[in-house]
Simulated assay, not measured.
Amino acid sequence: MEISGIISAIVIGLIIGALARLVLPGRQRIGILWTMAVGIVAALIGTAIAAGLGVGDTDGVDWIEWLIQIALAAAGVAALDRVKAHR
């Protein structure tokens, strides 16, 4: 992965994190920094999964890749929220 790919994954990860919070119902007990971190990690992992599945090579917007990334981020936000709730 090139540096431009990493930078774009970080920017997209910020958006993915925000979308993950919108997808999840109810209030999440984690801060915005944790949400952004989960979004960035989900964007990087989602890109790798999409590339492994062969769905990341389109000329336009990769909707399947976005859905994978949002699902991963939502799962990450929910998991982190549960960890924070038990403390």
Rank of each mutant, 00 (worst) to 15 (best):
E2T: 13
I3E: 07
G5V: 07
I7V: 15
S8R: 01
A9K: 13
A9D: 13
I10Y: 10
I10W: 07
I10A: 11
I10T: 08
I12E: 15
I15F: 14
I16K: 07
G17Y: 02
A18H: 08
L22Q: 12
L22G: 14
V23L: 15
V23H: 00
L24S: 07
L24T: 11
L24V: 12
P25G: 01
P25I: 03
R27P: 12
Q28A: 13
Q28Y: 01
R29K: 09
M36V: 14
M36N: 14
G39A: 03
G39M: 03
G39E: 05
A42Y: 06
L44D: 12
I45K: 05
T47N: 14
T47V: 11
T47P: 11
I49T: 10
I49K: 04
A51R: 04
G52R: 03
G52L: 03
V55N: 07
G56Y: 11
D57V: 13
D57W: 02
T58A: 06
T58Y: 12
T58W: 11
D62M: 06
D62R: 06
D62V: 12
W63I: 06
W63A: 10
I64L: 12
E65K: 15
W66E: 02
L67C: 08
I68K: 01
I68L: 06
I68R: 00
I70G: 08
I70T: 06
I70P: 08
A71T: 12
A71R: 00
L72F: 03
L72K: 04
A73L: 02
A73Q: 00
A74Y: 01
A74C: 06
G76S: 01
A79Y: 11
L80W: 02
L80E: 00
D81V: 05
R82F: 03
R82W: 01
A85D: 08
A85H: 08
A85G: 05
H86L: 06
